[in-house]
Nucleic acid binder design. Structure first.
Lengths: 380, 380
DNA sequence: CATTACGTTGAATCTGGGA
DNA sequence: GTCCCAGATTCAACGTAAT
């Protein structure tokens, strides 16, 4: 188990990416225009995440406009689906290219879709160099049944999580996700109800947006893959689920939305959203973000004496601690990790978990416990 | 509830598609060559289903160790190596085009893949004119964990079910699936364990094939979307899961496989497989494939007299039966389904379940019961 | 013989900070 | 950019051995 610790904006962000002056960004506001045009107004590498819920109904020609307002394709009653796929692909290429440009090098992209469009979106983003990290299945606990009994009940939607490249060092709060999932690794299939009840926004008694996404979905995504203070852009903002959750989780957001009714609904909704208290935002952090403790510090501070014998759990191997914090085994010297790997003939080893010491009572205890004690005693 | 009835090859197949002489097909055998070459040797429109488990193009990096230091046995076979996406796409286009050609007009295609390849496969098959009916999520109950804690556990694979066109009259045994799923509609996410235990084929103590699929997966697919006697072709036969399940379910199969070791293992395995007894094959069938009973037959045979009054369950609407089996309501005439839809102002209605008649005892009973009685009394 | 303990394994794009 | 090396990281099912 790790130690509770506040999330801090990862320091590498400050040093590794081109510095973007957040003051010049339209943070926490909606750009009331076409998303491609909107993104073009932003500088390169300025956002930490893009979350996109693009249109997928190929017959809704209105959703396929170019930045200049012209129609991508004449979608009339005689529409040919091949022409339509081409038009949809072009639209997808355009908004993805802009999203890619404004993403920081270590930022990630999330897209949600159904079988109508997700294969085209996925192939396109791979073509553009995005590196898929996971595909995530949103399993709806209460999907609409297939009334005609002609197919399987369409009970899920698919999300793609992708980095800008295979080398990118993306944000992923593994430990938070594991905690959220009752101490088991979070899987790629998430059970979340569809958006309804009080959460579902209404206008004159009817739903304000046909495909409003549940906040729980965005909550998990933002918690897992961004840090407080990060900037999340949503090119198809709709009624602003992304903005509402971002505000709750103390992330900045930028929305793109042409429809003025949606904009109005979203603004009112986000205005009402309450940011979580900072203490509620504390999450389980990976030990990676704990201060490092050198094994030698433990020796130096008397947690273990030089000359003490360490063994593995089953007492198959024994090694001696030296004053500088190195171990000796079979006339070979090295770190706890190196010698641990050596005795097992393994390529690598976490010495903290491998080596045990004997207490005065004769009990074997893993040396990682000493490190935890040291950390507790030396907390800031 | 429907009636238990034997599956029969759907009659339309015999009349609608170009007749293929099954004697000329290499039924229930493996074509030991490249799948594209193999499919080219077959005539047009000769198979009812193609099930394909193509290489995933995994693009794995270096070795991967578990936390305990042991090595993960990766898929490093030559058949999964492609130079780039373009090469993989070309390969996909070629085998899909042949699969499309040999499929009967009402036949369907199933493909399985992971996020590495499924988006490319999905987009390609849409480009070729296939009409996606569902994407199905195979949720693994026991996936391999993400050992490094770097992503969400990849706990599923994706299948695509597609018809040759949007007009195709594909086979789907809705009722069998609903029965299989405890009287709930079968959803698009299926929980099935990975293939292990006795089912996992071994050679000299190690797995015979790195990616053997569970029979439960094929069982559900073949049961849902083929009829006994249908022909299923698998272009990437491997160790023959498709063949083994097809034999069990009394379907014909054709496999394509280049690797002679896989061929040998598959042949032995299928040889051992026992076809299910015909009585075990009886499953709940869709009302559509039951012998149709015209409502008029019931009138004709005295199950209901002309002039009788029908109502809905709550006696909100009343209609009169005419001698030809049509109903009258508000001076409007039509079938039980049409008038049922009309009175509710609904787009459609299953009249068999909507309309009730009154017994001599004054009890309301759904008219579907009369149909069931008629069917029982008139069984062959 | 029953139960527990331990070892093995599965389509995996699987580390990251500092010099 | 490369290199070095500390050190973080697993779930369910199945098979076999030990108790």
């Amino acid at each position: 188990m790790g130690v509770m610790e506040k999330i801090a904006v990862k320091p590498k962000t400050a040093t590794k990416v081109a510095k973007v002056d957040k003051k010049t960004l339209p943070l926490d506001s909606i750009l009331k225009m076409d998303c491609i045009e909107a993104m073009r107004s932003l500088p390169d590498a300025c956002v930490d995440m893009v979350f996109a819920d693009p249109p997928y109904n190929l017959q809704l020609g209105g959703d396929l406009q170019r930045p200049d307002g012209s129609q991508v394709d004449a979608v009339d009653d005689d529409w040919d689906k091949f022409d339509n796929f081409a038009a949809y692909d072009k639209f997808t290429q355009e908004w993805l290219a802009e999203a890619r440009r404004i993403l920081k090098p270590d930022g990630t992209l999330w897209v949600i879709g159904s079988y109508h469009n997700i294969f085209r979106v996925g192939a396109t983003l791979q073509d553009q160099g995005f590196w898929i990290l996971n595909d995530i299945i949103w399993r709806k606990s209460n999907p609409m049944p297939n009334f005609k009994g002609t197919r399987f009940t369409n009970a899920h939607e698919t999300l793609i999580w992708a980095a800008k490249s295979d080398k990118a060092r993306y944000t992923f709060h593994y430990r938070s996700m594991k905690t959220l999932n009752d101490e088991l690794q979070m899987r790629s299939d998430w059970v979340i109800p569809i958006c309804g009840g009080k959460e579902r926004l209404k206008l004159n008694g009817t739903k304000a947006h046909p495909t409003q996404k549940p906040e729980a979905l965005l909550y998990r995504i933002l918690l897992a893959c961004t840090n407080p203070g990060d900037v999340v852009l949503d090119p198809f903002f709709g009624t602003g689920t992304t903005g509402a959750v971002a505000k709750r989780l103390q992330r900045h957001w930028i929305g793109c939305e042409r429809d003025s009714t949606y904009c109005k609904v979203a603004e009112e909704r986000i205005e009402m959203a309450l940011p979580l208290d900072e203490s509620s935002l504390e999450t389980m952090q990976s030990p990676k973000s704990q201060p490092r403790v050198a094994f030698g510090q433990l020796v130096e501070n008397g947690y273990l004496r030089a000359g003490a014998q360490l063994t593995d759990k089953k007492r198959r191997f024994g090694a001696i601690v030296r004053a500088d914090g190195s171990l000796v085994w079979n006339n070979k010297y090295g770190s706890i990790h190196k010698i641990g790997a050596l005795v097992q003939n393994a390529p690598s080893c976490n010495g903290w978990m491998f080596w045990y010491y004997q207490t005065r009572e004769g009990e074997l205890k893993v040396i990682d416990e000493l490190r935890q004690n040291y950390l507790l005693a030396n907390e800031p």
